[in-house]
Design a protein around this nucleic acid. Structure first.
Lengths: 229, 229
DNA sequence: CCCCTTATTTGCGCCAGCGCAAAGAGGAAA
DNA sequence: TTTCCTCTTTGCGCTGGCGCAAATAAGGGG
């Protein structure tokens, strides 16, 4: 199945592209579908392609030598990932991309995008805007991890997820994540996440289930995330 | 005192610039000198200028509402900082820049660089390369903070500093930092840094003094930083 | 509808690292 | 030399959060 080039405009980096460019990009893209739990690429692989997620959900994570991992970012539809290789020569992916459900992505040769960027300043510019966003987010999360207590970090992780992929349902906002995912996102362990969520449930802030958190009182979660003390 | 434009080539982002461009940039730059402990800008200020440090040393840090801070990066001569504003509209600085000693920097209007970048792809490209480097470093540090024990984090912080600003002296590599600085760089407290350094001193790895660490056995520090156990 | 796999909860014990407090130590200025 | 300020060290007690282990719950497939 070929992707309609104009769909690509949903990708933030391509928002100012011409129809012409989108068509070119679509022509150079390869579609790749993988199952839940499989990988688009591994940390350390040569960064030959960059990807645009077309459907499904994936996570970008980093693993240390001992195998422990942290979740850097969750990728949803029409987000770009693995793009660092388009900038550096002979780059390797600094993180691993794993599908959280059956997913499809467009793979675009990093070199090709690099070539396009030579003559299309808006592309570099939009990509740069994306990157500055990541830098800011990582800086913030780094500070959080260094200075904030676990409960607040979990609250923030939850809020970030709400902004990114929360779905409104009756009675609140729903998120689909395992405790383990949440732990990797907030730099803690699944046990602690479970305990904190249980406590919040007792307070009526959330309602939890298997791979599911329903936020009943978003304002309450915000208060935990922001409250100074 | 006016800066010789060709000196600007030491700035990584300007490495591929033409002499012409360097001259233009130099003409648009304002020199600003500040004393130790003073600030180039604060987190939250409108990001009107970006800076190139000409002499001295500064640190970029992020503060949380309660006032605790983490050190994101140490800036040495001819490094660019505060550049995020050149990319985003109406941006505010996401961090605070404080001089660690008497320092001088060139201030360049963010808008001006943005203008230059429109017609000089190499500039965007080199800036992007710089940014991808920051992203990678922050991702790594984030993972470290989430998964590694304090001792190892301190070892890594030390090694990063060695790479960036270590000076070779007889008997080792010397660094000039307070325990507090080191603590902010590795996400811990000055007490813990002090204890760890004392222990390393007993083991003969380092020699410590006021605002000073002499690394006697770099290999030993690397071992602590890398060793999987 | 039952079985198996995977996710979740919770009790329990433990310890790494925090942070106060108070005592050194080093430098700079006078 | 003395004073003062800042940086550093270290004892001490405490606790947040980790992680094992075992029980429980929830799906999903056959």
């Amino acid at each position: 199945m070929k992707i309609d080039p104009s769909m690509l405009r949903q990708v933030s980096v391509f928002q100012s592209a011409t129809e012409e460019d989108l068509k070119l990009i679509a022509q150079h893209a390869i579609e790749r579908s993988i199952e839940e739990g499989e990988f688009f690429f591994f940390q350390g692989d040569p960064a030959v392609y960059l990807y645009v997620l077309v459907s499904g959900r994936a996570k970008l994570m980093q693993t240390n030598p001992a195998g422990q991992q942290v979740n850097l970012r969750t990728i949803s539809e029409w987000q770009l990932f693995g793009a660092l290789g388009a900038v550096r020569e002979n780059a390797t992916y600094p993180a691993t991309a794993q599908a959280m459900e059956q997913s499809t992505a467009l793979a675009i040769k990093s070199d090709y995008l690099k070539e396009l960027m030579q003559t299309r300043p808006y592309l570099s510019f939009d990509l740069m805007r994306l990157m500055t966003g990541y830098i800011q987010e990582m800086q913030e999360r780094y500070r959080e991890l260094a200075t904030e207590k676990v409960e607040r970090r979990i609250a923030r992780a939850l809020l970030r997820l709400v902004a990114q992929m929360g779905t409104k349902v009756d009675g609140g906002i729903e998120l689909t994540f395992t405790r383990q995912d949440l732990a990797e996102m907030s730099g803690t362990t699944l046990y602690t996440v479970s305990r904190v969520l249980s406590e919040w449930e007792r307070q009526g802030l959330v309602e939890t289930g298997r791979e599911r958190v329903l936020i009943r009182n978003p304002h309450g979660v915000v208060r935990i995330a922001e409250e100074l003390n």
